[in-house]
């Protein structure tokens, strides 16, 4: 079995249609409608009082589903891609194997939730950015990108979805998200612990890993999707991030990166509106 599997060759049947982050960024419509409903709503957060709440929740749940598949693939690859002992300690691989087991269970839960919400497998495009973050050739960077950035995002998403289920009175959604959230906190904690252990005495490697995490965090915040602000669909789950081993400074840094992404998205929207207005006037 080969090592370091390319994202383009992930096994998917005909139900799936994959897109890359480049495809998403190339959509000229993406930043034009940030807060399109702001004149009527005080918050952009995913909540049942949105007119598009049901479809938005279905879309987000499908995003979770494909994210779980990619997280399973990523954790599985980490067990295989690196030599035991030399590149990655056996105990780290054991943690990744446990994570793969969790992710497989999450995929099954997500399929059942999608069915409950009226979504077919593959009904929404699959963004493969999550697996791309799991392709680093350095296990420390992979832990930073996947376990801390990606699984950290999962904490934010699951918290938002759990609150959505609670407010809507949907017992299945709230219960399932709560259980998966507990696993994600464990996954992030594993990443935080291993990052510190593997880079002990190697400040340069630690800095490179944290820089990679910051890049991935910003990618996942693209378009202002996730931040502390109510203008973002997904909130930053500070309490659960604390439980997962993030320090206050680290959470503040993610908040800054996310806020920056939100401001950039608003700036892009402003420029597009100006260009459109200039075009209309001319």
């Amino acid at each position: 079995m080969r090592k370091f599997f390319p994202v383009e060759e992930l096994a998917r049947d005909e139900r799936f249609h994959t897109i890359t982050m480049r495809d998403r960024m190339a959509d000229p419509r993406a930043s034009r409608n940030l807060n399109a409903d702001q004149s009527r709503r005080s918050s952009n957060r995913l909540s049942p009082d949105r007119k598009d709440a049901s479809d938005a929740a279905r879309s987000m749940m499908h995003g979770i589903f494909v994210g779980e598949i990619q997280a399973l693939e990523g954790a599985g690859r980490t067990c295989w891609d690196f030599t035991t002992g030399g590149e990655a300690p056996f105990a780290l691989k054991l943690d990744m194997a446990r994570q793969a087991w969790d992710e497989a269970r999450h995929v099954e839960i997500s399929v059942k939730l999608a069915d409950w919400m009226g979504t077919e497998i593959g009904q929404f495009a699959e963004n493969t950015v999550l697996f791309e973050a799991a392709c680093s050739h350095d296990p420390v960077l992979r832990l930073a990108g996947v376990n801390r950035a990606l699984e950290g995002l999962a904490i934010d998403v699951f918290t938002t979805m759990k609150e959505f289920g609670d407010l809507a009175g949907d017992p299945y959604l709230e219960f399932c998200e709560d259980w998966m959230l507990a696993d994600e906190v464990t996954h992030v904690k594993m990443g935080s612990d291993w990052l510190r252990r593997l880079t002990e005495g190697d400040a340069e490697r630690r800095a490179a890993a944290l820089e990679f995490q910051s890049v991935v965090d910003k990618l996942f915040s693209y378009g202002g999707t996730r931040s502390d602000s109510d203008e973002s669909i997904i909130g930053l789950a500070r309490r659960f991030r604390h439980l997962a081993g993030f320090t206050d400074d680290e959470i503040d840094e993610i908040a800054d990166v996310s806020r920056q992404a939100l401001e950039e998205a608003k700036e892009r929207k402003r420029r597009l509106q100006e260009r459109a207005a200039a075009g209309a006037a001319g």
Binding site: S54, A57, R58, D115, G118, A168, D170
Partner: peptide
Amino acid sequence: QHEQRWRYNFRNRHGF
């Protein structure tokens, strides 16, 4: 149409 999609929407507005 996917009936379950619309049932979910209805439940979100009227209770589960």
